[in-house]
Amino acid sequence: MALEHFSTYFDRDLATHRLVQDLKADRDARELLHRDEAAVLDAYDLLPAERAGIEQRDFRALYLLGVHPYSLAQLARLLYGTVEGAGASEASSALVESLLRDEPAPS
């Protein structure tokens, strides 16, 4: 199934958006995310599918649930790390690989 434009799925009320904004602003929470991810996620009212998407790094599922792509890109960097001086970093590659997982091969 080809992904539609993100606005088809966008759900502004998903707690993932707040999670990402909070993590960007809080170094301690970012460190905790890497030590004890569940403890960070427990503090948010995530839908079960939303939480599973984060835990499984299933960005495609999160996109289909309605997480905004900007927040997805930042979530990927929060989970995989920001690599200094990197272009196509591990975070962006993992994100795109997940998003295109079930796409038909280009003709």
Binding site: F6, A88, L99
Partner: peptide
Amino acid sequence: HEPGGPRYL
């Protein structure tokens, strides 16, 4: 550009 979308790269 398409940050965070399927055409991110």
